[in-house]
Simulated assay, not measured.
Amino acid sequence: MRVDEEESRIGLGDDCYLDLDGEFLMKDGERLFLTAIAFRLLRFFAEHPGEIISSQDLIRRGWGKDSMVERDELYVYINTIRASLEDTPGRPRCLRTIRGQGYILYPRDKSSLW
C-alpha cells in the first residue's frame, strides 16, 4: 500500500485504492462511496498497513478523542468497510480482527489463498 501524492490515492492492493480528493473507494473498476466515518476509518487503516490498531484508537480517529461511542457502533462501521472492501465480507482477508487487540489491514491480493 502506498500513497501517491500527485494523484492523492492510497493503494490497497489488487485493483483497489482510496481516492482522497473524491473521498471514495475504487474497487475492481467500481467507485464505492462510504460514509464520512467509514472513509476516515479506512483511510486510517490504509495509512497504517500491517499494524494492529486498537478499537480505542479507531473510535478516537473516527469520532474524536472525547467521543462516547461504544464498540458496538465501531463494529457496524468495520462491517460496512468489509462489505465494500472484501470479496467475501463474512470471511475477511484484508481487514482482519486480531482477537483482544484490534484490527489489521492487509493489501487486497486476489491470488492469495488463505
Rank of each mutant, 00 (worst) to 15 (best):
F44A: 01
L12N: 03
R60E: 07
L42V: 03
R40E: 03
E30S: 15
L95K: 00
F45I: 01
K110L: 11
D15Y: 11
R9T: 09
F39Q: 01
S55Y: 04
S8A: 12
A46E: 04
E51C: 09
L41K: 00
D57G: 05
K65F: 11
C94F: 03
R96K: 11
M68H: 15
L32P: 07
D72A: 15
S67Q: 08
S55F: 02
T97W: 11
G50D: 03
R31L: 10
E23V: 04
L105E: 00
I78P: 00
R93L: 12
E6M: 14
H48M: 07
P107Q: 07
E86W: 05
D72W: 13
R108C: 01
L20Y: 04
G11F: 04
I53V: 04
S8C: 15
T80G: 08
G29K: 10
K27V: 07
S84H: 10
L58Q: 02
R43W: 08
T97L: 14
R2Y: 13
E6T: 14
L58C: 01
W114Q: 15
V76F: 15
R108G: 02
S55C: 07
D4H: 12
M26R: 08
E5Q: 14
C16K: 00
G11H: 04
E7N: 13
Y17E: 06
R93Q: 11
D28I: 01
G50V: 07
A46Q: 01
I59A: 00
S8V: 06
I78M: 06
I52T: 08
A38V: 05
M68Q: 14
M26A: 07
G64W: 07
R96C: 08
T80R: 10
C94P: 02
P92I: 02
L85M: 06
L74V: 06
E73R: 15
F39T: 00
E7H: 12
I37M: 06
T97A: 14
F45T: 03
L41R: 01
I104A: 05
A36F: 12
D87G: 10
I53Y: 04
M26F: 09
A38Y: 01
K65D: 13
C16L: 02
K110Q: 11
T97M: 15
N79C: 15
I81M: 06
A38W: 00
A36W: 13
D21K: 10
I59S: 03
F33D: 11
L18R: 01
F44I: 07
D21S: 12
E51V: 04
S111A: 13
L74W: 05
Y75Q: 12
L85R: 01
S112R: 10
A46D: 00
E73N: 14
D4W: 13
G22Y: 07
E51W: 06
I52W: 07
E7F: 13
W63Q: 00
R31T: 10
D4Y: 11
R2P: 10
I59R: 01
I104Y: 05
Y77L: 10
L105F: 04
Y103H: 02
G50P: 03
W63E: 05
I10K: 05
C94T: 05
I98M: 08
P89S: 11
S84G: 11
